[in-house]
């Protein structure tokens, strides 16, 4: 660390200036890498699911569990503040869910994610799914330690969102375009949206889905199964 002494003209005394030059996110990035390593060692595939509020994270989560619960041991960590998730419904699906204590935070960081993992009673897990706080801005800046990042963009939000929230689309391996059942009622161009996503992140997989009816879910859950299976 570089320490410099500066003479203060006014006060006629020396003050120490300690140079830090460090990103505010650096400590979290390091914690996230550590957690990612540990989870890899335990064979747990952690998926970080992000979106704006109401885009359909919880509904998609339920569909995903239904599709994969016979093949994988799944656990859920809930961080969405206005979550209407029904613990009994999740339990009925044979899946453990814990509520994370975000203290009203607008994003999750690696430390909070680690606490969630430690709170899970079941230790034999293949896939842990994190429902992040509903927000398209800062969850993208805070690495949770997940092996995969997915985000949901719902049709009513508009096909230009990838241009307005570039970082979110850059960090995601998968973009789910949800609520395709309402496509006829919105000015949402699916092809245009794919182009906008590709501009930000050419590697992102895009799956149009309808979490309400289950349409298109299989392509997504197969992608997830493949990731978790080869983990």
């Amino acid at each position: 660390m570089y320490v410099r002494r500066v003479r203060r003209e006014m006060e006629e005394k020396h003050v120490r200036v300690i140079e830090i030059k460090k990103s505010v996110f650096e400590n979290n990035d390091r914690e996230a890498d550590k957690l990612r390593q540990e989870l890899r060692g335990k064979g747990i595939f952690l998926l970080n699911l992000m979106s704006s509020p109401g885009a359909g994270k919880t509904t998609t989560l339920m569909r995903t569990i239904e599709a994969l619960r016979g093949r994988f041991r799944i656990a859920v960590m809930e961080a969405d503040i206005d979550s209407d998730i029904d613990a009994k419904k999740i339990a009925a699906l044979g899946v453990e869910a814990v509520q994370l204590h975000t203290g009203g935070m607008c994003h999750l960081d690696a430390g909070m994610t680690r606490q969630g993992i430690e709170e899970l009673a079941s230790k034999d897990i293949d896939i842990a799914i994190l429902e992040n706080v509903g927000n398209l801005v800062c969850p993208a800046e805070f690495d949770t330690g997940a092996a995969g990042n997915a985000m949901i963009l719902s049709v009513p939000e508009g096909d230009d969102k990838p241009l307005k929230y570039p970082l979110m689309f850059q960090v995601c391996d998968v973009v789910l375009i949800n609520k395709t059942d309402v496509l006829p009622y919105f000015d949402f161009d699916l092809e245009k949206c794919r182009e906008n996503i590709a501009k930000r992140n050419p590697k992102a997989k895009v799956f149009p889905i309808c979490a309400k009816t289950g349409e298109g879910i299989e392509a997504w859950t197969e992608w997830l199964a493949q990731q978790a299976g080869s983990f």
Partner: peptide, 15 residues
């Protein structure tokens, strides 16, 4: 333009 850094601190103690 996306940077967010802690640059330095100035200490007023006598050390």
């Amino acid at each position: 333009g996306q940077e967010f850094l802690i640059k330095e601190i100035e200490c007023s103690d006598s050390n």
